[in-house]
């Protein structure tokens, strides 16, 4: 092993495949996306160079900003739900009965494929025979909401399964972090007379703040580029009520065959994601100091 580590050729050889893979599959496509954004291109046939036309159009495109707003809303919801996950994890980590079982229950949605989740929730939201509306009409409510078919409600309705889908993932990570908080600190605090709430707020949370920071960034970036459930459940509709950046990009590129403009949207999404990540990092850093 030592021999290998001191041999530069071997190191290069080991690093090279993954480096090439990342380069060819991630970084070069990113550059190409930016480049295609400069073109008028239908995906097949001749590309036409049109300079910054697509990007100019993007800035004035109401639909793009509307879908960006929807993505941002999703990001806000995801971050807010982190607070809920934190509470759940704190409870699970405090050695209550059945914590093990609950942990498994929370992780199960993670194991389902997005399309299965989408089908499940389409049935739940069904305005005629759906679970929710059947329940509501059981209680005598006549004018049951249309959920996904109502343009004013669809966006918030679809946030529910999206947030639900990733709950297990976040809970497990926070839980793992909490388990690693040294028991001595907690015991010391208890001897000093701290109650459970104080222990959680003053000791546990600060100690796992690194993990929480990473999760915040994951939640925000994941929300901004979110696509699956929206695509399967509403396709961005009704109208464009649930359109997010990624679904709008998909529609432009693969639905309308505007690969040039679709690429410009993709590049815009990249810039927005990088910008927000940088902003969050900066914000969280100043908070700590």
């Amino acid at each position: 092993m030592k021999n290998v580590m001191s041999n530069k050729t071997a190191i290069v050889l080991y690093v090279l495949p993954s480096l090439l893979l990342v380069l060819f599959l991630i970084y070069i496509p990113i550059v190409l996306t930016g480049y295609y954004g400069l073109m008028d291109w239908s995906g097949v046939g001749q590309m036409k160079f049109i300079g910054l036309e697509n990007y100019k159009k993007l800035i004035h495109d109401k639909l793009f900003w509307e879908s960006t707003w929807h993505s941002v809303l999703l990001a806000i919801f995801s971050v807010l739900s982190l607070v809920g996950y934190l509470i759940v994890s704190l409870v699970l980590a405090s050695k209550i009965k059945g914590a093990n079982l609950f942990r498994k229950i929370y992780i199960i949605p993670m194991l389902m494929s997005s399309v299965a989740i989408a089908q499940l929730w389409i049935k739940i939201f069904d305005p005629m025979n759906g679970l929710i509306n059947s329940l509501l009409s059981m209680f005598g409510i006549k004018d049951t909401p249309l959920w996904l078919a109502d343009p004013d409600m669809a966006l918030y309705a679809i946030f529910v399964p999206i947030v639900w889908q990733y709950a297990g993932f976040y809970i497990i990570i926070i839980y793992a972090a909490l388990i690693n908080v040294p028991q001595e600190l907690i015991e010391a605090a208890r001897i000093d007379g701290a109650n459970a709430f104080q222990i959680a707020y003053k000791i546990k949370v600060p100690l796992i703040s690194g993990v929480l920071k990473v999760l915040t960034i994951l939640a925000v970036v994941g929300s901004l580029k979110y696509f699956d459930l929206i695509y399967v459940m509403t396709g961005g509709g009704p109208g464009h009520a649930t359109e997010v950046i990624a679904s709008y990009m998909y529609k432009e590129a693969f639905g309308k065959f505007n690969f040039g403009y679709g690429s410009a949207i993709g590049f815009g999404l990249l810039i927005i994601s990088m910008g927000t990540t940088w902003m969050i990092q900066k914000m969280l850093r100043t908070n700590k100091e």
């Binding site: 005629m128 249309l146 078919a149 459940m233 509709g237």
Partner: peptide, 8 residues
């Protein structure tokens, strides 16, 4: 038409 058809 069936209620909620814009989601079907």
């Amino acid at each position: 038409f069936v209620k909620g058809n814009t989601a079907f």
